[in-house]
Design a protein around this nucleic acid. Structure first.
Length: 633
RNA sequence: GGGGCUGUAGCUCAGCCGGAUAGAGCGACGGUUUCCUAAACCGUAGGUCGUGGGUUCGAGUCCCGCCAGCCCCGCCA
C-alpha cells in the first residue's frame, strides 16, 4: 500500500485505500497532540507540526501500515522511542474510530508502531470494489468535461522516415500515460508532433527536384521505401556538399514562407508517410491527433517578436538567440538558444516555443492547457530545459501550470549499444512487431504440438498477435523509463518472470475457472455494475476469508488505487507493471494452494469473488498499459 | 571545458516523503502434478548497493568529492 506524500493526499480525492491512510494519519496526529501537547504546540508554532510518519508497512508481517514518528521525537522529547510509541498507543486505544479500523497496534523494533486493518474492514472494501466498475479508483478532482486539458505530446515520428524502435518507446509510454490520465477523468489531448517542417524537407525537396521530380507533384509516384532511400541520399549530399546545403536551406525558407510549389510537394510527402504511420498506430491500438511542426508555422514570427519585446533577444553571428541563464556551452561562453537562423529560417527551438505558447494560451487562440507532458528521449533533456526556461522568461507559462519533459533511455541491443539490425541499420518498428508475433506463433505451435491440443488457425493467429504485441509493449513499460533498456525477444516473450505472457496467463487461469463452472458474477467490468447491495459485515452473505493466501490476495487487490495515483503523479508506468506482476504472483500462489471450485459453498463464493476482482484488476491495469487480454492461450 | 543520465546478485531489472534482516525474474541446483491450463508453485545458493567523505537516532535513498559508462553542448530534429 503505497502512500504518496501526505501533502498530496487531497489531489487524489481520498480513494478507498488512501481513505484509510488519511483517516489513520488524522487519528495519529490527534493522538500525538494528546500525548505530547507541549511539543505539539511548539512544533505547530514553528510551522512544522508533529508528523506521525505514516507509511506502508515495509513487510507483510508488520501489518498494513507503520508509523515511524516516535523515532524522530526521541531527541526533542528526551525520551526512549519505544516509550513515546507506548504513549501514542495508549492514546490510540482510547480512540473508538481507530479501534473500528485497526486491530490493537504493536510496538516493534526501535519504536515503530505497526498498524493492521481489521479483517472485516478489508473484506467490506473488497465487497465495495466488486460493485464498482472503477474498482475503487476515483475520478480526479480537477478533471471532467470542460476542464483545462492535459496535453501529452508523444510518438512524433518524422515524415519521410520510417518509424523505428526509438519511436516505439515514446509511443508506448505516451499512450500509457494518456490512458492513465484519461481513466482518472482528465481531459487529455494526445498530440503527435510529427517532424514535418524542418531542414529535412529542404534537403528532400531539393534532391527530389533533381532526381525524381514526379514525386513532388503526383500522389503515390514513389512509395515510402523509396522516399526513405531518397532521404538518405539527400542527407548524404547535405552533409558533404556546401552548395547543396545552401540550396536546401533556401528551399526551407521558401516552404516556410508558403511557396505553392514547395507546399504541394510537401503535402504529398506528408500524405505518403501519414498512411504508413497510421497502419502502425492501428496495429498498436494507439489513438493520436496529428498536429505537426508545420501547424505552428504561422506563429513563429510572433514568437520571435514576443521574445524581442520581452528584451530577451540577442543577435549573435547573424542568428537571433536567447542566451540561457545558468547554462554554458563550450569554451565557457553562455549557451544560446537559436530561434532564427542567420538565413532567416526557423528551427525546432522556435517551433517548440511556439507550441508551448499556443498550448498554454487561452482558447480559441490556443489549447488552454494546464499541464504539458513531453515524452521524448533523454538526449533532448538539455534542449527542453533551454526551451522551458525561455518560455518561462517570456511569460508564456500560466501560474499553476505544469510543464514537464518525461524522458526515457535508449533502446539497446544485447551488446549494450543502440539497437541495430545485423547489417547495422536502424530496426524498423514494423519488422520488430512482426518478429515478436512470429516468434510467439512458433512458440505457441510448438506448445500445442507438445500438449496435443487442437486449435484452429484463427485462435493461433489471434493469440500470437495479442501476446506478441503485449510482450513488446510490456517489456518497454516495465522498466523504469529513465534507464536505457536492453531489448531482447527471448526475455520479453518468456513465459515466466515479469513479462506480458505471465500476466496474461493469470487472466487465462481465472477465465478457466469461470469456464469450469465458477460463476464470477458477470466477470467483467460491465457485469460488476449489476452487483447486489453490499451485505453487512458478519452477515451470512458477507465475504469470508480464512487462508493466508486469500488475505495476501485481498491486500494486494486493494493497492490498485494508490498505485494508479502514484503512476499519475510520478509519470512512471513501470510502477503499474510491478504492481500487476506482484498481483499475478500473489494470485498464482492463491490458485496453487487454495481450491476454489471444490471449496465449501461460503468459501467458494468468497474465493470466486476474489478471482473476479483479480481478473478485473488485471484487465483494467493491462488496459491502461494498452495491452489486450485473452480468455485462453 | 560545461551540463545531464546511469552505476544494486553471474545476467536483466525493482527499490515509492530516509526506516526494521537490500527485493524480483532469468540462469544454476533441488523438490511439487488423482485437483480450476505445471505457461504454475515451493526451496537452496548468490550482494562490502561504483568509491571516499558528510548530514541523521537511522542512508541503496539526501549533500559534497572522486572513478567508470552513455548522452547533449549556435544556426539538424
Amino acid at each position: 500500500m503505497s502512500v504518496p506524500p501526505l501533502r498530496d493526499l487531497a489531489r487524489f480525492c481520498t480513494p478507498p485505500m488512501l481513505r484509510f491512510a488519511q483517516a489513520l494519519d488524522t487519528q495519529l496526529r490527534a493522538a500525538m497532540e494528546r500525548a505530547f501537547p507541549e511539543a505539539a504546540a511548539e512544533a505547530s508554532a514553528a510551522g512544522r507540526p508533529l508528523d506521525p510518519q505514516l507509511a506502508p508497512a515495509s513487510k507483510p508481517e508488520f501489518g498494513d501500515f507503520q508509523a515511524n514518528g516516535a523515532l524522530a521525537l526521541a531527541k526533542p522529547l528526551q525520551q526512549a522511542p519505544r516509550q513515546i510509541a507506548a504513549a501514542l498507543l495508549a492514546e490510540l486505544e482510547a480512540d473508538t474510530a481507530f479501534g473500528a479500523l485497526c486491530l490493537p497496534p504493536q510496538i516493534a523494533g526501535p519504536g515503530f508502531l505497526n498498524l493492521t486493518l481489521r479483517p472485516e474492514v478489508l473484506a467490506a472494501e473488497v465487497q465495495r470494489r466488486l460493485g464498482d466498475p472503477r474498482l475503487g479508483v476515483p475520478l480526479a478532482v480537477a478533471g471532467g468535461a470542460g476542464a483545462a486539458p492535459v496535453i501529452v505530446d508523444f510518438s512524433s515520428p518524422n515524415i519521410a522516415k520510417e518509424m523505428h524502435v526509438g519511436h516505439l518507446r515514446s509511443t508506448i509510454i505516451g499512450d500509457a500515460m494518456a490512458r492513465v490520465l484519461e481513466f482518472r477523468g482528465q481531459p487529455v489531448l494526445r498530440l503527435n508532433h510529427v517532424g514535418d517542417w524542418g531542414t529535412q524537407f529542404g534537403m528532400l525537396i531539393t534532391h527530389l527536384k533533381q532526381v525524381a521530380p514526379a514525386a513532388l507533384d503526383t500522389a503515390d509516384a514513389v512509395d515510402l521505401g523509396d522516399l526513405v532511400a531518397f532521404y538518405r541520399q539527400a542527407k548524404q549530399r547535405f552533409d558533404a556538399d556546401e552548395d547543396f546545403q545552401t540550396t536546401a536551406r533556401q528551399e526551407v525558407v521558401r516552404l516556410q514562407a508558403g511557396d505553392p510549389v514547395s507546399l504541394k510537394a510537401w503535402g504529398l510527402l506528408c500524405d505518403q508517410s501519414r498512411r504508413e504511420f497510421q497502419q502502425l498506430y492501428e496495429r498498436l491500438d494507439i489513438r493520436l491527433n496529428e498536429r505537426g511542426e508545420s501547424f505552428y508555422n504561422p506563429y513563429l514570427e510572433a514568437v520571435v517578436a514576443d521574445l524581442d519585446a520581452a528584451g530577451l533577444l540577442v543577435v549573435d553571428a547573424g542568428a537571433k538567440c536567447v542566451f540561457l541563464e545558468g547554462m554554458q556551452g563550450k569554451d565557457g561562453k553562455p549557451l544560446p538558444l537559436i530561434v532564427q537562423k542567420s538565413d532567416g529560417g526557423f528551427n525546432y527551438a522556435t517551433t517548440d516555443l511556439a507550441a508551448i505558447r499556443y498550448r498554454f494560451a487561452a482558447p480559441p487562440a490556443g489549447d488552454g492547457a494546464r499541464w504539458l507532458i513531453y515524452v521524448t528521449d533523454a538526449g533532448q533533456a538539455n534542449h527542453f530545459a533551454g526551451v522551458f526556461q525561455v518560455a518561462r522568461r517570456a511569460g508564456w507559462i500560466p501560474g499553476g501550470a505544469r510543464l514537464e519533459h518525461v524522458p526515457f533511455g535508449l533502446v539497446q541491443g544485447d551488446d549494450g549499444k543502440k539497437l541495430k539490425t545485423r547489417s547495422g541499420d536502424t530496426v524498423r518498428l514494423k519488422d520488430l512487431l512482426d518478429e515478436a508475433v512470429e516468434r510467439c506463433e512458433a512458440d505457441l505451435r510448438r506448445r500445442l504440438a507438445e500438449e496435443e491440443r487442437q486449435e484452429d488457425e484463427e485462435f493461433v493467429r489471434q493469440v500470437a498477435t495479442i501476446v506478441g504485441l503485449a510482450a513488446v509493449k510490456y517489456a518497454d513499460l516495465s522498466t523504469n523509463r529513465i534507464t536505457n533498456y536492453q531489448f531482447s525477444f527471448d526475455r520479453m516473450l518468456a513465459l515466466q518472470g515479469n513479462t506480458a505472457p505471465y500476466l496474461l496467463y493469470a487472466v487465462v487461469r481465472i477465465a478457466g475457472i469461470a469456464r469450469k463452472g465458477g460463476d464470477l458474477g458477470g466477470g467483467d467490468l460491465a457485469g460488476a455494475q449489476a452487483a447486489v447491495a453490499e451485505p453487512q459485515a458478519g452477515s451470512p452473505e458477507a465475504l469470508q476469508f480464512s487462508e493466508p493466501q486469500e488475505w495476501a490476495l485481498v491486500r494486494e487487490l486493494l493497492k490498485l488505487d494508490t498505485v494508479i495515483a502514484e503512476v499519475e503523479q510520478e509519470l512512471l508506468p513501470n510502477r503499474l507493471c510491478s504492481y500487476l506482476f506482484e498481483l499475478s504472483q500473489v494470485f498464482n500462489r492463491f490458485y496453487d494452494q487454495v481450491p476454489v471450485l471444490k471449496a465449501e459453498p461460503a468459501a467458494r463464493r468468497s474465493r470466486l469473488a476474489l478471482c473476479r476482482l483479480t481478473a478485473d484488476t488485471l484487465k483494467l491495469g493491462l488496459g491502461l498499459l494498452g495491452i489486450a487480454t485473452l480468455e485462453r492461450m
